[in-house]
């Protein structure tokens, strides 16, 4: 049986997992409520901007508990996964989680795009921001997926969020010493390779800033890190054994 034949089964298992996780439903409902509130209380434009920045977090939350529990719980020691098929299943999880999040993001974005086009409030740069958001979503799936080999349940997501909070608070408390970086972030101007690399390092922890401050270096850097995390996952999975329960 080819890997392609097994994909629908992996999709079916993961779709049900994503739908049955209460936190996913809460995050999605919360996002929809927030967007609706911003639209009604403020404007379409603010709601769209919030959507573009927050949408990648759907991918992050959908990536909770991707590997560790399934590997160590014994679920994979099943007739469905004999002959090393569990490896194909685990590799395909990344694509399925990303596809699920992208599907929801596309539906929401279509709604915004149709309304924006109809009311002439849609700007072309929004499309670029959405594509950058998709890349950020993929980065979250790859990074959270890799972390989930080492951390149980939703700890992989919490670690990323904690990292973001710590960086944000760190920047806030050291703002006076880091005016250069903050000014460059505000101006979207990164003169010299040092400033570009500094921004790149920040965007690995707070990738959502790439949505607002896009530069080819950062998009390529984030893409390379996404590929690296996917590569590391594949390397881990290739040598993975179902050892203990």
């Amino acid at each position: 049986m080819s890997g392609r034949d097994r994909l629908p089964v992996a999709f079916s298992i993961n779709r049900r997992k994503l739908l049955s996780a209460k936190v996913n439903g809460l995050v999605l409902s919360g996002l929809l409520l927030l967007l609706a509130y911003l639209w009604i209380a403020d404007s379409f434009s603010l709601s769209l901007r919030a959507f573009l920045y927050l949408c990648p977090f759907l991918s992050l939350f959908f990536s909770q508990d991707m590997m560790n529990d399934e590997i160590h719980s014994g679920f994979l020691e099943n007739v469905l996964f004999i002959g090393g098929r569990f490896r194909c299943y685990l590799i395909s999880k990344n694509a399925l989680v990303a596809a699920f999040a992208l599907g929801i993001a596309l539906v929401l974005f279509s709604g915004f795009a149709f309304y924006g086009l109809a009311t002439r409030q849609f700007e072309a740069r929004v499309l670029g921001q959405f594509v950058a958001g998709v890349l950020v979503g993929l980065y979250y799936v790859a990074a959270a997926g890799f972390l989930s080999f080492f951390f149980r349940a939703g700890s992989n997501v919490l670690i990323i969020l904690l990292g973001q909070v710590l960086l944000f608070v760190g920047l806030l408390f050291t703002a006076s010493q880091r005016m250069g970086l903050l000014n460059r972030l505000t101006d979207s101007s990164f003169p010299g390779i040092g400033a570009k690399l500094e921004f790149l390092a920040v965007s690995f922890v707070l990738p959502n800033i790439v949505i607002a401050r896009r530069s080819w270096l950062n998009v390529l850097g984030l893409g390379a890190m996404t590929a690296l995390f996917f590569g590391l996952q594949i390397w881990k999975i290739k040598s993975l054994e179902l050892r203990k329960r």
Binding site: V9, S12, G74, F75, N78, L80, I82, G83, R245
Partner: peptide, 27 residues
């Protein structure tokens, strides 16, 4: 090849009929 482990464990979010349908589709 069929396999029955000593202590079988199943995806906790799936019902019995869903697992069987998955298995049927897979094979």
């Amino acid at each position: 090849i069929g396999y029955v482990p000593e202590r079988p464990a199943f995806f906790p979010w799936l019902r019995g009929d869903q697992i069987l349908r998955c298995t049927a589709r897979n094979f």
